[in-house]
């Protein structure tokens, strides 16, 4: 690992530098934990604040939360289908909200003001370990969804419509988490790097369009991750009609 570090007051570019914590025999990236706890805390605070005084006519935060809920319900229902989407709405919604708030938090919060001994705070999703963990969760989720709904008939999916598809379907089980995690990680890291490089060249104004593009792609990536997770689960629980 070759740590790269260009020093400039606002825009220090650090790749491959981490705040290492040792827990048990494991070396973990502390800055990712800190920023994901902040993200989780912010989400919890928002939800608790929005649901404390529920009213018949939603106002303010409650209105926002109901809008988000409706949006996520439509997303899950479109992909998973009317029958099974209720079981999986919390999972899909959590994925979407965590990824979305992580991405935007990494871009919008001035993390540089908080000084760490090594590495820097940023979007938790700009670390490959986070995205791989999320993608593996999705893998587990769709296996569980398929097996719990259909039992061992789930494996019929591998030989449908013909047994020739078997190797492709098995390879697909490995490429699904791979592409999910790399897509999210690459997009978020690329956004951060583009902004950092532009800010290194011209510190004022010029990085702004790249930042807005970054916000846009971050939101789309959160949507894509949630949509694909829902699609994979929907594929697993889908009943073939012969």
């Amino acid at each position: 690992m070759v740590p790269l570090s260009l020093s400039l007051p606002f825009a220090e570019l650090e790749v491959g530098q981490h705040l290492y914590w040792k827990i048990g025999g494991f070396q973990i990236h502390g800055q990712v934990f800190l920023s994901s706890w902040l993200v989780i805390g912010a989400l919890l605070a928002l939800v608790v604040a929005g649901t404390r005084n529920l009213e018949r006519d939603p106002r303010g935060v409650q209105n926002l939360l109901e809008f988000i809920w409706g949006y996520l319900r439509d997303l899950a229902r479109d992909q998973i289908g009317e029958k099974a989407y209720r079981d999986w709405l919390p999972f899909i919604g959590t994925l979407f909200l965590f990824i979305f708030v992580s991405n935007w938090g990494g871009a919008l919060v001035p993390w540089k003001l908080i000084h760490l001994p090594s590495g820097e705070l940023g979007a938790p999703t700009a670390d490959i370990n986070t995205t791989i963990a999320l993608a593996l969760l999705v893998s587990l989720a769709y296996f569980y969804a398929g097996l719990s709904r259909k039992g061992f008939r789930y494996f019929e999916y591998y030989v449908e419509p013909t047994p020739i598809m078997l190797p492709f379907k098995i390879v697909e089980d490995f490429t699904k988490p791979l592409s999910l995690s790399f897509r999210l990680f690459g997009n978020i890291l690329a956004d951060e790097l583009v902004v950092a490089v532009l800010a290194f060249l011209v510190p004022l104004v010029v990085p702004l369009p790249a930042m807005f593009l970054g916000l846009f792609t971050s939101a789309i990536q959160a949507l894509i991750f949630a949509t694909l997770a829902a699609y994979y689960i929907g594929e697993a629980v889908h009943e073939e009609h012969h």
Binding site: M1, V2, G16, L193
Partner: peptide
């Protein structure tokens, strides 16, 4: 982005 990830691995985590 997959290409970019490969490029980043080659540059920073070879």
């Amino acid at each position: 982005i997959y290409g970019l990830v490969v490029a980043l691995v080659l540059l920073f985590a070879n």
